[in-house]
Simulated assay, not measured.
Amino acid sequence: MTQGVLITIAVVLGWIVLAAIQRRLQARHRNRAFWALILIGIPVLGWLTLNGGPMVGVAGLAMGIVVLLRAPRRRVSKRMVPPAE
């Protein structure tokens, strides 16, 4: 592996970490972070395709879509439900 490919992989992994952090943000900041990740991700995807080829680029696109659009987890309420009478 050349140094350029390793740098590309590091940038892609950094993007994945940012996408994971985005889910933890407050709702009012989450939308802006979503669009910022898309704006950052487009050139990163192009760079990944340039260094890895078209199949790696398609795999990166699929991975990015899954990471950004996965369903948010719901928090379980700790409140006790009263028993039915």
Rank of each mutant, 00 (worst) to 15 (best):
I40K: 04
G41A: 05
I9E: 09
V58S: 06
I9A: 14
G41E: 00
G41N: 02
L68N: 02
W15Y: 04
A84G: 03
G60M: 03
A36G: 11
Q26T: 09
A71P: 11
G4R: 14
A59Q: 04
G14Y: 05
G14R: 09
T2R: 12
V81P: 05
V67Q: 08
R73I: 10
L48P: 00
A84F: 06
W35C: 08
L48K: 03
A33I: 03
R32K: 11
I16C: 14
W47I: 10
N31P: 08
V76I: 10
M63Q: 07
A20E: 12
I16P: 00
M1D: 15
N31E: 10
L37V: 03
P54W: 15
V67T: 11
T2V: 09
R24Q: 10
V17L: 15
G64S: 14
L45A: 06
A19L: 01
R30L: 00
W15M: 03
R30E: 02
R32A: 09
P72Y: 07
P72F: 08
A71I: 15
R30N: 00
Q22I: 01
P82C: 04
V17M: 14
L68F: 01
T8W: 00
G4T: 14
G60V: 01
G41D: 00
I65Y: 11
I16K: 06
M63A: 15
V58N: 04
K78H: 08
L61R: 04
P83M: 15
L13S: 10
P82A: 06
T8V: 03
R24A: 07
I38S: 07
V12D: 01
A19Y: 00
A19H: 02
L25E: 02
L50I: 11
V56C: 05
A71Q: 14
L13Q: 09
I7H: 06
L69R: 15
R32E: 06
V66K: 13
W35M: 13
V56L: 13
A19V: 03
F34Y: 12
G4I: 15
R73Y: 07
G46H: 07
A27H: 06
G14W: 06
T8Y: 00
I42G: 01
R24S: 09
F34G: 05
I21S: 05
A19E: 00
P83Y: 13
L68D: 03
P43Y: 03
T2L: 08
R75C: 04
Q3N: 11
P43T: 02
A27C: 02
P54Q: 13
R70S: 09
P83D: 15
W15L: 08
A59C: 03
I7M: 06
V44S: 00
V58Q: 07
R75D: 06
M1Y: 11
A19I: 00
A36V: 14
K78T: 10
L13H: 09
H29Q: 12
I38H: 06
A20L: 14
F34D: 02
M1A: 15
G57Q: 00
A84C: 03
R79D: 14
A62I: 13
I42M: 11
R23I: 08
I7T: 13
V12G: 03
V5Q: 13
L61C: 10
G57T: 01
M55K: 05
T8H: 02
L37A: 05
M80R: 14
G46K: 03
M55A: 12
G53L: 07
R30K: 09
A84S: 07
A71E: 15
G60T: 02
G14A: 11
A27T: 07
G14T: 07
V76G: 13
G64F: 09
G57C: 04
